[in-house]
Design a protein around this nucleic acid. Sequence first.
DNA 1: GATTGTGAAAGCGTTCACAGCC
DNA 2: GGCTGTGAACGCTTTCACAATC
Lengths: 227, 227
Amino acid sequence: MAQSRRRIPEASVIRLPVYLRILIEQFEQQVDNISSERLAELAGVNAAKVRKDLSYLGSYGTRGVGYEAEYLIYQIRRELGLTHDWPVVIVGAGNLGQALAGYGGFSERGFHVAGIVDVDDNKIGSVIAGIRIRALDELAKIVSGHEVVIGVVATPADAAQDAADRLIAAGITSILNFAPAVLSVPASVVVRKVDLATELQVLSYYEQRRLTALHSVPTGSTRGASA
Amino acid sequence: MAQSRRRIPEASVIRLPVYLRILIEQFEQQVDNISSERLAELAGVNAAKVRKDLSYLGSYGTRGVGYEAEYLIYQIRRELGLTHDWPVVIVGAGNLGQALAGYGGFSERGFHVAGIVDVDDNKIGSVIAGIRIRALDELAKIVSGHEVVIGVVATPADAAQDAADRLIAAGITSILNFAPAVLSVPASVVVRKVDLATELQVLSYYEQRRLTALHSVPTGSTRGASA
DNA sequence: GATTGTGAAAGCGTTCACAGCC
DNA sequence: GGCTGTGAACGCTTTCACAATC
């Protein structure tokens, strides 16, 4: 009965892109129908979780049969807002910003880089993956010109808050933050953080425990751990 | 009373690196003592959470006063296993692998790149950020030679499982996976996943909702959202 | 017979609120 | 008086288990 306009719990939202990727892969391999059991196996989670997650979208499975891959792909895409391409703008054309600008995985999955800006005059004008690095001042122009709502912060930590402030002033409402800094933003702006060093530090914790510990490691499954 | 050898809940482990970074920053700015209230403000979380998280390390605060920054830095470092530098090996020298190899944030926070390998003969031999790209075959040699236990998968999705298998065969026990693929690994290996496109897709969901929705966005705080 | 969809139970993580200590 | 440390309450997430349906 869970109808589509109901809010989906955040924990489920995070898994939907995983299911989507797997379903697309399976569909490309001529798999038309898939059970929660099989999808769970491929996603490295348990089948009840898959069913509950998918039930938030609506009742799109068939009892005794499973889920039709193509239809489910469409429904997940619709729910995630992936029926159209989203332009994103990147602030910071260092190592990471440039890698993100050139990262094929974005365009493959519904995003394209509308622009990348940097403060450094030496970088401005260079072209990476067909995109010219522009001045920080041009940010507002790029955002309004392409109707961008998602911004990526790929600056050093000490420039991150300023980058966020400028993005928000330009009209951005969602931010993906790669800088190792906590951003202070209005409640209406959604921020997600990806901190590469933090991820390694978490692994370091478990390695550290392994050395001292009598207890075993926390991830019980034989499949890949979550993130 | 929570003594240091007790297992720390994963949710807390993930926040410790954030506290650590803030404490280091504050200490560098001559702040010797910090309250849970202030630390919470800087970390974008609530003060009770900070106190509970820190209580898993032991009782290192002083009632009526707060936490001594320097001592707490030491305790968090010790708990996270950051009292020494960790070598990491990167598989995949594409856009992302190269950016990671050159990323200053790693060395700043306790990690150094012991090696980077790729299958592509055209890439092998090139030097990025002072590190020479080596052949995939040399992986085992690098891992045993430098006693590496942490591996980074920065390959395309279809090469990720093979990369993981090779890392594990070489003796790696922790993997940071940037490929958009679920890795199948033995239960003794810890995997953390960073999926860049997934993060954008989650933002897309909230933007999508904003358009249709009557309800407001989920992250209530005026500070940066979690990740 | 197989598999979904979902209430109910169990398990975690967060927040409250206050006793305990400086 | 101020701030930590933590039991208890609350809320969210996962898992179980089975009725409903094909």
